[in-house]
Design a protein around this nucleic acid. Structure first.
Lengths: 343, 343
DNA sequence: TTCTCTACTGTGAACGCTCACAGAAGCATG
DNA sequence: CATGCTTCTGTGAGCGTTCACAGTAGAGAA
């Protein structure tokens, strides 16, 4: 392994150097670099050898300049970041996307658009073509950035179904409703009949769908849907605590709670324990997400696993397809019940 | 606000378009773009107006091609990612760096080098000049990537003092030793005398320094340093549980534990509670990091705050300085004791 | 033979920018 | 009037790549 550029920063080899070394022209080297069609086996081999010998790496700037592509994608957060960064799911998603993209040799640019100023700057950056597409993580409706990007024709894939955008935007989401149904059925199967629910924010599809699943199952079982059993939260731990308190006063006889996120469920557990209710003996608690928070809780949470690894993989797949010219697509992935100590 | 490129994807305006619109030459526009030296006020104004009117955004690829800079930096994780992604500190650091860079209009590329393969690919990518510098997050010693990057002359700033690399590499770190000293002194001030410690991994500077602080204070107070009081962990929650179990068998009379990370402290709390010890009445527990895990724990953790916002800001500052040609530098930032329920 | 088709190769001409340089204009100095 | 200096401006070249096009050579068909 002889490296020609030992120490210091030498001018890196260009496609010319490779061509000279291999005894072919730039064109041929370029063809090898881009799939190797219309290249003779001999030339192919010579070029590859020359690349190894010179330590050549393509200059992406030069390539991007002429192709118009940037061969990079943005990972865009348009909300106050605390929300996401304290959410363990977010981590998993970010990692999954980075890895899925790495497999295609595409770097991920992390973009935070918390303030109005940042939003403007980033919108400019993106619409200027500095990324080929955007993975959008934003749950709330009426996101102006998403709207603008869509109108500018930037390939876009959202995580979770975006509300308020036309149907022409791709998204990948877990089957929230079905997951909620599984959890509520699970609680029923344990003999629980007074099942409270702490919903997510109801201006997000996840919040709405999980509540809908809860109501559906109760209705199917012929159980009444008591308004006192329904309180809403915002996915944060604090709102879980507050929600549980409201539940305990409105419906002190509850024997189970379905909580629309693990983080909120942590809060629910804390409140229940403070109130002297044992989990799961007195009150069973079911979470949602199967985030690291689920095993960090005590007792460990029974929860609904969102297939984050598949979600990120699909987001990348759909985005790349769209960059490649395909039409937008929606992908819904199944969830899974994970039983632990809290039920 | 009239946008010339409404809908669809039109060819974006170039520096030529701006020059024509402003009635000047490319050179003048370029000068305005790069600080505006040697440009008359009249030309300055005309160019700015033309930029606004055309909606011009500089093509970074073209610029990078000639300048050799990429105007982007990498955020590199060289360890098995689970470790970091489950660590709430990591989030804060990543966000801080992204924002600090955004202020300079520099995008952050997230790079995960978990496997050997990825390591190779990413090293190539970086040494090919696709980023101007690297923010390195890797605690363990003997990291081959860091070594290679250093040798290739890539500007580099580590988070936490890297072991094993020459002293010529920049880093930014919290004052681990001093933080540990604060915590142990705090526990002593509460009247505790049998203070156990769960250390971090001892091949990391943080692990070593925090233990050193613990020992120093005990020595200063004339207290014996009992080997039974010292167990080591790896910063994970599970290792906190295991560590607490060992402590309870080796030294059942402990009345306090200093735990080198909040995540481990969560595990310690769980084990103590299972063993019937009340926190803080029977055993006081002090964590380290002041991560979100600290308030997620019950009781909420007394801990040592690492100034992550300042750490990220300093990392970016030092990296940019180094990219600008300055010499490497080390920055140590003070920590702060945060009192909560567990002591 | 001659023509066509396929597989392969080399060569300018971009892509949009910055940089070095040349030059102009204004003003003071010799 | 020449000379120098400073401030400002325009121009050509070139960064490293891909793309379109023009070839070449060999095989098969007419």
């Amino acid at each position: 392994m002889t490296m020609s550029h030992t120490g210091g920063r030498r001018r890196p080899p260009t496609i010319h150097d490779v061509a000279r070394e291999a005894g072919v022209s730039r064109g041929t080297v370029s063809r090898v670099l881009n799939g190797g069609h219309y290249v003779s086996p001999a030339a192919q081999e010579a070029v590859n050898a020359a690349i190894r010998k010179t330590g050549y790496v393509v200059n992406r700037h030069a390539r991007s300049l002429i192709t118009g592509r940037s061969d990079s994608v943005g990972f865009l957060l348009t909300e106050p970041q605390e929300r996401f960064f304290e959410d363990p799911n977010f981590n998993v998603l970010l990692r999954g996307c980075t890895q899925a993209l790495a497999a295609h040799d595409i770097p991920l640019l992390l973009m935070l658009a918390g303030t109005e100023d940042e939003r403007r700057r980033i919108t400019r950056y993106i619409t200027a073509g500095h990324v080929d597409g955007v993975l959008l993580v934003s749950s709330h409706s009426g996101d102006p950035v998403a709207q603008e990007l869509r109108e500018a024709g930037v390939p876009l894939v959202a995580c979770g179904k975006p509300i308020g955008l036309g149907s022409k935007v791709s998204y990948v989401a877990a089957d929230d409703r079905d997951g909620a149904r599984d959890m509520v059925r699970h609680l029923l199967s344990l003999g629980r009949r007074r099942i409270g629910v702490v919903t997510g924010p109801l201006d997000t599809p996840g919040g709405v769908e999980r509540l809908a699943g809860y109501k559906e199952v109760l209705a199917e079982e012929g159980l009444p849907i008591d308004d006192d059993l329904v309180v809403s939260g915002d996915y944060s731990r604090a709102s879980g605590e507050a929600g549980a308190e409201r539940l305990l006063t409105q419906a002190p006889d509850i024997d189970a709670v379905f909580v629309a996120s693990d983080l909120m469920a942590q809060g629910v557990l804390a409140t229940l324990q403070r109130a002297g209710r044992r989990v799961p003996q007195d009150v069973a608690v079911g979470g949602f997400d199967d985030s690291p928070a689920a095993v960090a809780a005590s007792p460990e949470l029974t929860t609904i696993r969102q297939p984050w690894d598949r979600i990120s993989a699909e987001m990348v797949r759909v985005l790349l397809a769209q960059i490649g010219g395909e039409d937008p697509a929606a992908v819904i992935l199944p969830t899974e019940l994970v039983k632990r100590e809290s039920t």
